[in-house]
Amino acid sequence: MTRWLSRAYLASVYLLLYLPIVVLVVFSFNDSRTGYAWGGLSLRWYQSLFNNHAMVQAMWNSLWLALSAATVSTLIGALTALALHRYRFRGKKVLNGMLFVVMMSPEIVLAISLLALFLLVGIQLGYVSLLLAHVTFCLPFVVITVMARLSGFDERLPEAARDLGASDFTMTRTVLIPVIMPALMAGWLLGFTLSLDDVVVSTFVSGPSYEILPLRIYSMVRVGLKPEVNAVGTLLLVFSLVMLMLSQWILTRSKR
C-alpha cells in the first residue's frame, strides 16, 4: 500500500514538472493565433520563426557564443582541474574557494560584478564581454566534471610516464588527456548548454551590437503570449535534451 502510494506520488510530481514542457511543445504546432485554444496542427510558427531575420541572427549569435564559451571554458577548466589535482601550490584552497563561490553565488551577483568590471576596464559590451562572462560561470562545472574523473585515476600512470623520461607536457598530452577525454566532452556539452540557456548574466553584460536568443525571447515574453516563442522554445528544449543525452551517454560508456 505505502509502496503504491509512494509510486503514485513520484509519478504525480514528475507529471507536474513535465506538464508545462509538454504543453509548450504541443502548442508550438497550434494553428490558432490567440495561443490558448487549439486550432489544428500547423508549422506556421516555425515558418514565421525562420522568416524572422533578427531571430535567425540571434540564433546564430547564440550558437557561436555557446560554441566558443564551451570551448574556452573546457580548456581552462581542464587545466585548472589538472593543476588542482597534481600540483601543490600556495593558495590552492583559495582557488578552490573561488570556484565554489562562483558556483554557489546567485547569478545576479556574478552578473553585476562583471558588468562593473567591464565598464571600469573599458571592455565594450558585446561578444567579448559575453564570452568572458559565460566562460566564468561555466568554469566551475567543467572543473568539477574533470576532477570527478581524475579522482578515480591510477596515480602510477603519470609517474610511470615520467620515469620513462616524458616531460610534464608530454605526459599530460599522452596520458592524462586521453583519460579525462570523456569528462572533457561532457564538460563541453554542459558548458554549451549553460551558455545557450543563460538569461540572468547575459541581461547585464550584453550590448545592442550582439543580440542573443535568450534575450530576444525575454523581450518577447514580457508582454503577452507570442506563439513564435512556443516554437523557438521547443527548438531550444530539444537541442538541450540532445546535448544532455549525449553527455550521459559519453559518461556512462566511459565507465565500462
Binding site: L17, L24, V229
Partner: peptide, 22 residues
Amino acid sequence: LLIVPFWTNSLVRTYALKLILA
C-alpha cells in the same frame, strides 16, 4: 529526468507556465 530541467532553458519553462496559468 530530474537533471533535465537543469539543462533546459528556465526562461522558456517559465513562459510555458504562463500558457497554463493565464
